[in-house]
């Protein structure tokens, strides 16, 4: 009886996310067009004809790979990142529309409601990520074959899910602090762009050392997005990147813990009583 209730609530939240997603026709389109532009335009212009040396840790079987192939895990991360932040936006929307009150008065533990919300958002993120792969990769592969096989992307599924969970939990955490929908532009500037650009999504990190941008290199090494991208890159080639896996797992747990804490009414009381006392 109890387990059925838990499953039904998760199902309810997931169905709601999927219905809302399917009602917003442009959302899937923009989720695919954004990385597709990077793949077909940016990669075409920037990529070296001779290829690129992937990274200090090279998961590829050769030293040089074409830039289209290099950038693909990063663009997959971009889809997950935008979708994760969209979950944050939907939480803020729910709060503004009052739906959040209904979610928080359901007779289930609050942490479970937040995890369910995270899972529902991640399902959408992963669907979008695979739509991008299924639509865009065959087109690129027509004129530049990848070392990564199509099955590689399906083997990477659990790691793409973990990457999505990490970014979704970051979105949940941000939703604790974003009080209005209007503040979402700030999220773009201070979270999405730095996370994406200061990572190994677009270029290998050794390039930063070569260019003398050591501080950017160190920030990129601290950026969990870098580890997510490298974990997915490794997984798509049938390899396991332990550091990436651990960073993603630990970050997911930390972000989620802080988000659950942020939505706990007791915290509100603690803050109030502190201010009351002094």
């Amino acid at each position: 009886m109890k387990i059925r209730h838990y499953i039904a609530a998760l199902l309810g939240l997931s169905i709601r996310e999927i219905i809302k997603f399917s009602n917003q026709k442009g959302r899937l389109f923009s989720a695919i067009v954004r990385p597709a532009l990077w793949l077909f335009v940016f990669a075409a212009g920037v990529g070296s004809a001779k290829g690129i040396q992937p990274a200090l840790i090279n998961f590829y079987p050769t030293q040089n790979i074409n830039y289209f192939e290099y950038i693909t895990p990063g663009l997959l991360g971009m889809v997950l990142l935008f979708s994760g932040m969209q979950s944050s936006l939907s939480m803020v929307y729910d709060r503004e529309m009052g739906v959040m009150k209904i979610l928080l008065t359901v007779p289930l533990p609050r942490w479970y409601m937040l995890i369910s919300k995270l899972i529902a958002g991640t399902i959408l993120s992963v669907i979008q990520a695979y739509c991008f792969l299924i639509i865009c990769l065959p087109i690129v592969n027509i004129y530049t074959p990848f070392l990564t096989s199509f099955t590689g992307w399906f083997l990477a599924f659990p790691f793409i899910v973990l990457f999505g969970l990490m970014l979704g939990s970051l979105g949940l955490l941000l939703s604790v602090y974003i009080k209005q929908l209007e503040n979402f532009a700030g999220t773009m500037n201070f979270v999405i762009f730095p996370m994406f650009f200061i990572s190994s999504a677009l270029y290998p990190l050794w390039r930063l050392i070569d260019n003398g941008a050591l501080y950017v290199y160190h920030i990129a090494k601290l950026n969990p997005f870098t580890y997510g991208v490298e974990m997915v890159r490794a997984a798509s080639l049938g390899k396991f990147y332990l550091n990436g896996f651990l960073v993603c797992l630990i970050c997911t747990l930390i972000f989620l813990f802080l988000a659950v804490r942020g939505y706990n009414p007791q915290n509100n009381a603690i803050k109030k009583s502190k201010s009351k006392n002094g």
Binding site: A8, G12, I19
Partner: peptide
């Protein structure tokens, strides 16, 4: 959809 959503949340 709203009513079914609520029903699922309550198991």
């Amino acid at each position: 959809e709203n009513l079914l959503f609520h029903a699922r949340l309550h198991g």
